[in-house]
């Protein structure tokens, strides 16, 4: 009986790993970089993590996890509370649709699709923020952030693959 409880507890902890790892990565990327240039190249790790985990671990990474990550991004990013949460919920919904196809496709296809989805999310965020503040925001910095997010995808995805293989029960064979 205690063994069963122990197993249940372990399973519960395992299910929280994607969320916790995503939050940890987000915190890491909030570190002061002491450089203006690097600040513009800060990737949106939240988008990468939500896309990766939703694509590969749908059963343990759902809307609620994306909502929590979004709230965290709103608080630390000083965007209106709920904005990132809403966008990440949308990202989950968008990623769920082609996930069956994407799960069997190659890494480069997933990366390409990520590029498109990330662009849509960032442009939507830009538009919503302009509407919210009723002020034009420069696109240059956002584009720099977009390119760095797309460039960082393989690195963060590899890290997530390693974590998934090390700590989570198998769900997919080809996760990257």
């Amino acid at each position: 009986m205690p063994n069963k409880k122990h197993e249940q507890l372990l399973a519960f902890a395992c299910e929280r790993i994607p969320l916790l790892i995503s939050l940890l990565l987000i915190f890491l990327f909030f570190m002061p970089l002491n450089s203006v240039q690097f600040n513009y190249f800060r990737p949106s790790v939240g988008i990468i993590c939500v896309y990766y985990w939703r694509l590969n671990r749908q059963l343990i990474f759902g809307y609620f996890s994306a909502f929590i990550i979004g709230l965290m991004l709103d608080v630390y990013g000083s965007t209106p509370l709920g904005l990132n949460a809403l966008l990440l919920l949308l990202l989950v919904a968008i990623t769920t649709m082609p996930s069956q196809y994407l799960r069997t496709s190659s890494f480069s296809v997933r990366w390409l699709i990520f590029g498109f989805i990330c662009m849509a999310i960032m442009l939507l965020k830009w538009l919503l923020l302009m509407l919210y503040f009723w002020h034009f925001l420069s696109l240059t910095e956002i584009m720099l952030g977009y390119f760095s997010t797309v460039m960082f995808y393989p690195l963060i995805a590899t890290l997530n693959v390693w974590i998934a293989q090390k700590f989570l029960p198998p769900e997919n064979i080809d996760e990257l």
Binding site: F27, M31, R42, G77, S78, L137, I142, G145
Partner: peptide, 11 residues
């Protein structure tokens, strides 16, 4: 201990 993590805010 932390600064804003994206291009949409400065805090």
């Amino acid at each position: 201990i932390a600064e804003s993590g994206d291009n949409f805010a400065h805090l």
